[in-house]
């Protein structure tokens, strides 16, 4: 059974690249355009992994991650965030909010899949 991955990013091109890569790998992709938009999936939809950007309008990634963790069904699913900063402060903030790991932009598909394999099989 193919796994459901929710990708949340305000950039359409990033969303497309990520979706394309994941769909190629046989995953089922759900898409949210920002944190607020992605909240609609937290309605019991079965999600195996979330990949979210941090900088987004309406609701940023950190806040979105907090929301996910506050929902019982999703409190332990893996969450990866996308970041360009190697700044540890952002990483720490996201980890503290409950993220499992991160993917550093720019990435090639192999790198994305590499990070994903650390948290999902």
């Amino acid at each position: 059974m193919s796994k459901n991955i929710l990708i949340v990013d305000d950039s359409e091109s990033i969303r497309e690249v990520v979706s394309f890569t994941l769909e190629n790998e046989g995953y089922n992709v759900l898409v949210g355009v920002d944190g607020k938009d992605a909240l609609r999936f937290l309605d019991g939809t079965h999600i195996d992994l979330i990949i979210t950007d941090l900088h987004m309008p309406n609701m940023n990634g950190i806040e979105f991650i907090r929301n996910v963790r506050a929902t019982d069904q999703y409190k332990r699913i893996p969450i990866l965030f996308l970041t360009t900063e190697s700044q540890t402060s952002k990483k720490m903030e996201a980890k503290e909010a409950g993220a499992t790991g991160w993917i550093i932009k720019p990435f090639v598909p192999a790198k994305l899949i590499g990070a994903l394999k650390k948290v999902l099989r």
Binding site: I77, I79, K117, V119, L120, R121
Partner: peptide, 14 residues
Amino acid sequence: IFSDGTNPLFLLDE
């Protein structure tokens, strides 16, 4: 460690 969805088995596998 499990609280944020980490599964250490995948790391060992890696």
